[in-house]
Design a binder for these strands. Structure first.
Lengths: 489, 489
DNA sequence: GGGTATTTGTCCGTATGTATG
DNA sequence: TCATACATACGGACAAATACC
C-alpha cells in the first residue's frame, strides 16, 4: 500500500484540449498500462494542482471522471486510491472462431455509406491508402456541420418539453417535408400516408419485404447492381433472378422472360454502370408492371446530384405511384452518419402498412428527424444539394481530363453526367483484379465492376468504378496517374 | 397589388419565446389562414420594427425565416412580398383506398415504444384518455433531457472534426461500453466482436434472421408473447409455433415436442405474464439448446428494472453464450425516442456476421451512439437506472394497494416485482373485451392479455395488463378506481 | 426629366443573458 | 469562481431602389 506523491504528468496551457481532459487522459493511460499498482494512493488534489500549476478544481474534476469510470476510488478526507483495472472479467479470451472471420471482410464496397473496416485495434493489416476512389458516401467538406448542430440543438430543446410518442411511420413534420422534396426534386406524387421514414435503405426494404403479399416470390435484380438492396430481398427468401443491364438500363425482355413479379431498378443513374433509362424504356417497364401486376422498386440513390441537366422525372411520378415504390436517402446528401431514408409506397402497400403499423417500430432517431424536417423546411437541403452538384461537377471534370491525358483514348468513360462516381473501361492486358491489386500497392483504392455481379463475368476488358465523393479534389490527378501506371504491364 | 402598412401583431417582451420567433409564428399563421393576398407588400422592416418597438434586425430575421420557407419573397431595396401558398401541387387527392386502412390501426400495443396513433390531423375519432395504462415506454419525468442534450452536443462537436466512416457493427466506444454494461448488469459474457448495435430490437432481429443458417426453419414462440419480435420472424418466413407459458416460463415439453430449433424467451420477466424463470428451468432450456443445436433468443426487455432483488443472471451468461443470442435495449431506460439497442451474438453467428458485414449498414445514428457511449462510460446510465427502479417500485406499490382496496381479493396480481407493468386476473362476470370497452368510456386505457395471443383463448377469467411506466403516480389511484367500476356488472 | 431626399434591404460589429465546462 | 460559447437583440453604416420636387 504505497503512496504516490508525484506523477510524471505534463499539461499544455494553450492546447485546444481542456486541461481536465489532458490530466484525465494521461492518468487513464497510466492505469491502463498498469504502471500503478492497485490500492496505491494518488497525489492529493492540492499537491497535484500545485505541481501542474492549475486550479484545484481542474484536478478534482479529472479525478471525479476517473472515479465515475471505476479506475480510482475516492475515500473522503483520506485520498484517492487506484483500483485494480487489469481484472476485466467481461473480456473473454478469443477462441479463434471469430478472429478467423473478422478480417475476411476486406471487400471495400463503393456504395456502403459505411465502409468496411479492419479490426478496431490494428489497422496494420491494411496498406495505407492515400488515394481512395471507393468512398462514395458524400463530400464532407461541403456539409456545414456547425449549422447542422444548431438544428439538432433546436430539436433537442423542443423535445425537452413534450417528448411525446414515436410515430412508427415517421414524424409528421418530416413526412410533410419529404413529400414536398420528393415532388419538387423528382416529380414523385403521393399522399402523406404513403411515405415511411426509416434508418437507412435496408430498414425500409425489410419493411417492404414484409408488406409485399406472399404470392410475390421472384425479384428481377439488375446485374450488376446494388448489392445491399439485393441482400435484403435474399434475406427474406425471395428468389433473385439477375437481369442484364445495357446502355438503356435493365433488359426488359429478360425481365419479362424471368417470370419475376418484382424488380429493383435505379433508372436515373444505374448503379454501377451509370446508364440512364430513356423515356421509351421507362414506359415499357411501367407497362410490364401494369400487365403483370408487378412491383417496381425505384432506388434513386443519387438522382438529385445530376451535374448537367435535370434528370428525367422519376418512374414513380410517371406512373403516379400505382406500381412503383420509390426509395430515397439523405445519407448521400448530408453526411453518412445521418441514418435517415424514406420510402414512398404504392397506395395498396400503404393500406397494408397502416393495417399493421402497430407491429413495426420506427427506426430513425426522432431528434434527427425533427432536425432534418426544419433543415428542409428552411431550404438548407436545397442549398446543400446545389453546392454538392457544383463540387461534383468540378471533380468529374478533373477526373475526366486526367483520365484522357493519362490513357490517351485507351480508357472509355461511362456515366459521368450524374452523381458521385463514374466507370472506366480500360484497354489493358492485365485483369481487373490484378490492376486493383497493383493500384493498392501504389496506395490507390478502386473497385472492379465485377464486384457487383453475382456470377463471375466472362472477362472482357477490365472495368473499374471510380467514386469521387470522398476524395479531395487535389488528390485526383495524382491518384489517376498512379492508377494508370498500375495498368501498364 | 396593394400594400400593407400595418399588421395586427403583438409581441410579449419578457416571454420565454424569442421575439423573432413570436413575429415569425404570427406572420406564418396569417399566411396559412390566407388573410393576406398573394403579391401584397408587407410592411417594411423599419416600419414594423417601429410599430412593435423592437430592433430592425429582429423583424429582419423573422422575415428571413419566412423567405426561407417560401411564404414571402424579398426584393432587394424594394420590400417583402407575399407569395401564393395555397397551390401545393405535391398533394394528390385521396382515392379512399388508403383512408380505409388508416384508422383500423386502433390496437394500442403495450410494448410499442411507439404508440399507435390516430391520423395526424384529427384525433377526434378517439375518446380522450386520461388514465393510460398502456404506455409502457419509460417514465419520462426521470430522464434529465438537458443532461442528455449536453452529451449529444459533445458528440456533435467531436464529430465535426473527424466525421469518419460509419461502422456497420456499431461505434467501438459504444460497443465497449455495452459489453461492460451487459456483464455488470446481466452477467452476460462476450467478446466485442459478438456485439452488434442497431436502431431498435426489430432491426437487430432482421439481421439475426438473415444470419441464422437456412436449415433452421421453426421458431417456438412464447404464447402469449412479444408480438413485435414474433412479427419479424414471421416476416422472414420462419414457421412460428406458439408454446405455452406457465408460472416458470416457457413450457419445455411443448418446446421439445414442437421440433423447433429456435426459441425466443424473456426469462427474467416473461412478457406479458410476468413470470420469472427459475434456475432449474433455465438449465433445462440450455440443455435443450445444446442437445438440439438450437438457438435461444433472450429478450431481456426490462430486467435491469427489478424492484426487489437482483434478477438471476442472464441465460447468455449461464451458457457463456454458446447457444444464446442476448438482446437488450436502451429505449426503455432513457426515453423511447432514442432508438438504440444491442444484440450479443453467439460466436458462430458472429463469425457469419463478420464474413458479410459489408453487406449490412448500421441503422443507429452515429451521433447518438457516441453520446450514449460517453453517457454510459461516465456512469449516468447507472444513475438513471437506479432512479427508475425507485420510481417504478413506488408506482408498483401504489398500484398494488389500490387494487387490493378496490377489488378486496377479487383481483389477483402477477409479476409485480420487476419492470414497469403487472398483470391482474379479475373475478368478474364481464369479458375482458367488455371491460376494456367500458374502461375506455371512463377515460381509462388498458390492454387485455388476449391481445398477445395468436389464437383466441378459451375465455377463463378476464386478465388485464397494467403498464405504469408512462402514467403519473398521482393518477394511478383514480385510474384504478374507475377501472374497478368498469368491472362491475 | 434629372437631381435630391427618403425609404428600403443588407451587412456589420457589439452588448447581454444564459448555459457550459 | 472564472472563462468561454452561444443565442438573441440591438443600432450604425452602406448602397440601391423609390418617391418627390
Amino acid at each position: 500500500m504505497n503512496n504516490l506523491n508525484s506523477l510524471a504528468l505534463t499539461v499544455e496551457r494553450h492546447s485546444r484540449e481542456p486541461l481536465t481532459m489532458q490530466i484525465y487522459t494521461q492518468l487513464r493511460q497510466t492505469f491502463l498500462t498498469g504502471t500503478i499498482p492497485s490500492g496505491c494512493r494518488l497525489p492529493s488534489v492540492r499537491r497535484l494542482a500545485a505541481q501542474l500549476e492549475v486550479s484545484r478544481n481542474t484536478v478534482e474534476t479529472a479525478y471525479a471522471q476517473l472515479v465515475a469510470e471505476g479506475y480510482v476510488e475516492g475515500r473522503e478526507k483520506s485520498g484517492y486510491f487506484a483500483l485494480a483495472v487489469t481484472h476485466q472479467p467481461w473480456v473473454v479470451p478469443a477462441d479463434g472462431k471469430i478472429d478467423a472471420a473478422v478480417g475476411q471482410n476486406d471487400a471495400r464496397s463503393a456504395t456502403d455509406s459505411s465502409k468496411t473496416l479492419p479490426r478496431s485495434s490494428d489497422s496494420a493489416t491494411f496498406p495505407q491508402i492515400e488515394y481512395d476512389f471507393t468512398d462514395s458516401s458524400v463530400d464532407l467538406t461541403v456539409m456545414d456541420m456547425a449549422l447542422w448542430r444548431r438544428y439538432v440543438n433546436r430539436a433537442l430543446k423542443e423535445a425537452e418539453r413534450f417528448s411525446g410518442p414515436v410515430r412508427p411511420q415517421g414524424e409528421p413534420e418530416l413526412i410533410e417535408a419529404v413529400t414536398r422534396h420528393a415532388f419538387e426534386s423528382r416529380g414523385a406524387v403521393c399522399l402523406k400516408e404513403q411515405v415511411i421514414i426509416g434508418a437507412g435503405i435496408q430498414s425500409l426494404l425489410h419493411l417492404l419485404c414484409a408488406l409485399i403479399p406472399d404470392h410475390y416470390t421472384r425479384v428481377g435484380f439488375e446485374e450488376p447492381g446494388f448489392r445491399q438492396a439485393r441482400q435484403i430481398f435474399a434475406d427474406h427468401r425471395f428468389l433473385i433472378t439477375p437481369i442484364g443491364v445495357d446502355s438503356q438500363g435493365i433488359d426488359l425482355e429478360a425481365l419479362t422472360a424471368s417470370q419475376a413479379e418484382i424488380t429493383c431498378v435505379s433508372p436515373s443513374h444505374q448503379f454501377p454502370l451509370g446508364s440512364a433509362m430513356p423515356v421509351a424504356r421507362r414506359a415499357q417497364l411501367l407497362a410490364w408492371a401494369a400487365r403483370r401486376r408487378g412491383i417496381i422498386v425505384e432506388d434513386d440513390y443519387d438522382s438529385e446530384l445530376s451535374h448537367v441537366n435535370r434528370p428525367l422525372p422519376s418512374l414513380q411520378g410517371m406512373d403516379r405511384g400505382e406500381h412503383v415504390v420509390y426509395i430515397g436517402s439523405f445519407s448521400k446528401l448530408l453526411f453518412p452518419a445521418l441514418r435517415i431514408s424514406y420510402m414512398i409506397l404504392t397506395p395498396s402497400l400503404a393500406a397494408t402498412y397502416h393495417g399493421r403499423s402497430h407491429l413495426y417500430n420506427q427506426t430513425a432517431s426522432k431528434i434527427e428527424q425533427l432536425a432534418l424536417a426544419n433543415y428542409m423546411r428552411e431550404g438548407q437541403l436545397g442549398k446543400q444539394v446545389r453546392k454538392l452538384r457544383k463540387v461534383y461537377a468540378r471533380k468529374a471534370d478533373i477526373l475526366q481530363t486526367t483520365i484522357q491525358q493519362e490513357w490517351r483514348g485507351k480508357a472509355k468513360i461511362f456515366g459521368k453526367s450524374t452523381g458521385s462516381h463514374l466507370l472506366i473501361e480500360i484497354d489493358s492486358p492485365l485483369s481487373a483484379e490484378r490492376i486493383v491489386q497493383r493500384a493498392e500497392e501504389n496506395s490507390v483504392a478502386v473497385l472492379p465492376v465485377e464486384h457487383f455481379y453475382t456470377k463471375n463475368q466472362a472477362d472482357n476488358r477490365p472495368r473499374l468504378l471510380l467514386s469521387f465523393a470522398g476524395i479531395t479534389e487535389a488528390l485526383i490527378p495524382e491518384g489517376i496517374r498512379r492508377l494508370a501506371k498500375s495498368c501498364n504491364a
